[in-house]
């Protein structure tokens, strides 16, 4: 096949994949296959909310959603301690989230911020350093639903007993083409991250 022919083939495949992901429920089906349903929530010794990014002292949408998810679990009495993670220069994402939680009525004594974790694996390690001395083993892990399987595996690996508490960063049954593409992008990114973690021996 000539160079032009190969490019046409790649282009046609790209257009077909774009159409399939944007204009059919394919991303929803892939989501159903890749992301298992979370088990029912149960009480734990701490709620750990994973980072999702901030720009200065403004949390990203994902970060805000996860932080609110953690606060909601705390307000439902599912754990006595709420750990907010998220890196960055002060005020770090973790600090901004702790302030938000305080504004929403979580007592300062029940809050812990740790901004040392730069990756999910880091976050598992620093959470263990923070919580193991307090005797915490069982945690409610708050992160995006597509991120839960990898994050839970990394947290279990350092010693935690994990109860997944997923928050939907992207809608998981979208009907609008743009939302379907966002879901496909999130799933593709997560697949790459899982592959990287496996190759690196982290999973």
């Amino acid at each position: 096949m000539s160079g032009r022919g190969a490019l046409r083939g790649i282009g046609a495949t790209g257009v077909a994949l774009f159409a399939a992901f944007a204009f059919t429920p394919l991303p929803n089906l892939v989501y159903g296959v890749l992301i298992p349903n979370a088990p029912p929530l149960e009480p734990a010794a701490a709620i750990v909310v994973l980072g999702a990014g901030a720009d200065g002292d403004v949390l990203t949408d994902d970060s805000l959603r996860r932080a609110l998810g953690g606060v909601a679990l705390f307000r439902h009495g599912l754990a006595p301690l709420l750990v907010m993670l998220g890196p960055g220069r002060e005020p770090s994402e973790a600090t901004v989230r702790v302030r938000l939680a305080e504004d929403l009525g979580v007592p300062p004594a029940a809050l812990l911020a740790d901004s040392r974790g730069l990756t999910t694996r880091d976050e598992a390690r620093v959470s263990w350093e923070d919580l193991a001395p307090r005797g915490v083993r069982k945690i409610l892990l708050v992160t995006g639903s597509q991120h839960v399987p990898r994050a839970a595996a990394l947290f279990r690996r350092v010693g935690f007993e994990v109860v997944p508490a997923p928050v939907d960063d992207v809608p998981n049954g979208p009907r609008r083409p743009q939302a379907r593409l966002e879901l496909a992008r999130a799933l593709f990114r997560e697949l790459l991250a899982r592959a990287y973690n496996r190759v690196a021996g982290y999973l």
């Binding site: 046409r8 282009g11 046609a12 790209g14 257009v15």
Partner: peptide, 13 residues
Amino acid sequence: AARALETIGLGVV
């Protein structure tokens, strides 16, 4: 259309 597919293919690469 063939030229357009070539350009899209190049973009994917």
